[in-house]
Amino acid sequence: MIEEQAPLNKLDAAVVKYDRTHSLVIAIFYVLGCASLIGVIHWFEWSNVLSIILISLISITFCIDYFILPYIRYRSIRYEVHPTYLEILKGVFFRTREIIPIERIQQVLVEDGPLSRRYQVQVVEIQTAGTSHTVPLLLEKDAQALKIRIMDLIKEVHSDV
């Protein structure tokens, strides 16, 4: 039976630091793109108002992505492994509750990159025959524990699927 309450497992508060650093890295590309566009604006001698608008938009986007979104992502992602299914809850305004039957899971991947290794943060990707589901921003120890728990449950399932 599927539970009515939200999944119990929350993200660790340490992932906010990783998420903010990730925002800084993305901001570098925003700044490079903005500088290129400002160069084009000055090359064609267009109005300086376009440069001001572009810089303002990039600044506002960065502030939202750096100061607000990491905390929202931290608070909005939950997951829980039940004996027969995995439950993932994501979203702020539009909440998505994914229920993945253990018997349908074909593969469990743990992904990380250079920045995520630095902060010991990983993404667990659960693949079924037709779809892929992710539990993002887990600490390395939590990601490995989740993978092991799911793999143990998969071994216990006897299915004709």
Rank of each mutant, 00 (worst) to 15 (best):
Y119D: 03
I52L: 13
G39M: 04
P83K: 09
F67S: 12
T84C: 01
K17D: 04
C34N: 02
W43E: 03
V81R: 05
F62R: 05
L32W: 02
W46P: 03
A129P: 11
A129W: 12
Q106S: 08
L37W: 02
V15S: 03
L50M: 03
Q127F: 10
P101T: 04
P70R: 04
R118K: 15
T96L: 11
H82F: 10
L54G: 03
I38C: 01
L32S: 05
G33H: 07
S76W: 09
D65E: 15
C34P: 00
Q106R: 11
T84Q: 08
V81Y: 00
S76N: 13
I68G: 10
L86C: 06
L69E: 14
G130H: 10
P101Q: 05
I60T: 13
W46H: 07
F93M: 03
G130P: 10
F93E: 00
V123I: 14
P83I: 04
A27E: 06
S59D: 08
R20V: 06
S76L: 11
E98K: 10
T21Q: 07
Q106F: 10
I28Y: 09
V25Q: 09
T61L: 10
S59M: 11
L115I: 15
Y85N: 01
S23I: 05
E98I: 12
R73F: 15
Y71F: 15
L24S: 09
I55H: 02
C34H: 01
L50C: 01
Q106N: 13
Q106H: 13
R20Q: 13
I88N: 01
R117S: 09
Q106T: 10
N48P: 08
I58H: 00
Q122F: 05
V25T: 11
L11R: 03
I58D: 01
H22S: 14
G33D: 06
V31R: 04
E125N: 15
W43D: 01
I77G: 00
I126N: 02
F67I: 14
T84Y: 03
A14S: 14
A129K: 12
A129T: 14
R73C: 05
V110Q: 04
E125T: 15
A35T: 04
E103C: 07
V92R: 06
E111W: 13
V49P: 06
P70G: 05
A35S: 05
I77C: 01
I55C: 07
Y71V: 14
L115G: 10
P70T: 06
T131I: 08
L24I: 11
L115V: 15
V81G: 03
G91L: 02
R73I: 07
D112M: 07
I68N: 08
I72F: 13
V25D: 09
L89F: 10
V123H: 10
E125P: 08
R95V: 12
V121G: 02
L57Q: 06
L89K: 08
I58E: 02
A27F: 14
I72L: 15
I126G: 03
